[in-house]
Amino acid sequence: SRSVIRSIIKSSKLNIDHKDYLLDLLNDVKGSKDLKEFHKMLTAILA
């Protein structure tokens, strides 16, 4: 869910600018399909 993804971003080791950017992107995501794609992208970034 959106709140879980937000929590993953906030607890990541990324610097604050990257976190803010990803949180802004997350706010722009519409629909469950796009949310799944965003989660895939985030997982790849944090891997």
Results as ranks from 00 to 15, higher is better:
L26E: 05
N27A: 12
K19R: 05
L25V: 07
S12Y: 02
R6T: 11
L42C: 00
K33I: 07
E37P: 03
G31L: 07
V29G: 02
A44M: 10
N15E: 06
S32G: 14
A44C: 06
L14A: 01
K10R: 08
S11M: 07
I9K: 00
S3N: 14
K36C: 05
V29L: 07
S32E: 14
L25M: 12
S3V: 09
K40C: 05
Y21C: 06
L46K: 02
S32Q: 08
K30H: 12
Y21I: 08
L46H: 01
D17T: 10
V29N: 03
S1W: 15
R6S: 10
I16H: 12
D20L: 09
S1G: 05
S32Y: 10
N27M: 09
A44D: 10
D20M: 15
I9Q: 00
D28C: 08
S11Q: 10
K19M: 05
D17M: 10
D28H: 11
L35I: 08
L42I: 12
S1F: 15
S3E: 15
D28R: 14
R6I: 08
S3P: 05
H39C: 10
L25Q: 07
L23D: 02
L23C: 03
S11G: 11
G31S: 14
I8K: 08
I8D: 03
K40A: 10
S7T: 10
I9N: 00
I5N: 02
L25H: 03
L46C: 03
S12Q: 01
K33W: 08
L22V: 01
S11H: 13
L46M: 08
L35K: 02
D20Q: 15
I9H: 00
I16M: 14
D17H: 12
Y21E: 06
F38M: 03
N27Y: 06
L25G: 01
F38P: 00
D34V: 06
L26T: 01
T43A: 09
L46N: 02
K10P: 00
N27K: 15
H39T: 10
D24Y: 12
K10M: 15
K36H: 13
S12A: 06
A44H: 09
L23I: 07
S7H: 14
S11Y: 10
A47C: 06
L22F: 05
R6Y: 07
D28S: 13
K33F: 07
K40S: 11
I5M: 09
Y21Q: 15
L14C: 02
S12L: 05
H39R: 12
I45H: 07
R6V: 15
L22G: 00
K40P: 01
K40H: 10
D28L: 13
L14N: 01
V4N: 11
D28N: 14
D34S: 12
L25S: 04
L22C: 01
S7M: 13
A44K: 14
K36D: 09
E37A: 14
L42Y: 02
D34K: 11
K19P: 01
S12D: 02
K36Y: 13
L22T: 00
K10L: 15
H18L: 15
K30Y: 06
I16V: 11
V4T: 07
K36E: 14
M41D: 03
D24P: 01
K36W: 08
H39P: 01
L22E: 00
L23V: 04
K33T: 09
H39M: 15
I45P: 01
R6M: 13
R2T: 05
L35C: 03
L14E: 00
K30S: 07
L25P: 00
D28M: 11
D34L: 14
L26Y: 04
A47W: 08
G31C: 04
K10I: 14
D24I: 12
D20R: 15
L35Y: 04
F38E: 01
F38Q: 00
A47F: 08
G31R: 05
L14V: 03
L42G: 00
I9A: 00
T43L: 15
I16T: 13
S32I: 09
K19V: 05
K30A: 05
I5V: 04
A47D: 11
A44E: 11
Y21K: 09
L23S: 03
D34N: 13
S7E: 15
A47I: 10
K10F: 07
K10S: 08
I5P: 00
I45V: 10
A47R: 12
K36Q: 10
K40M: 08
V29Q: 06
A44N: 11
L35H: 02
R2L: 13
M41P: 00
S1D: 13
L46R: 02
I16A: 15
A47N: 12
V4F: 06
A47V: 07
L46W: 04
R2I: 14
L22N: 00
K13V: 08
M41W: 10
H39Y: 14
N15P: 15
T43N: 12
V29T: 09
K33N: 12
L22S: 00
H18W: 08
H39D: 04
I8N: 03
K30M: 06
S7D: 14
K10A: 12
R2K: 14
L14D: 02
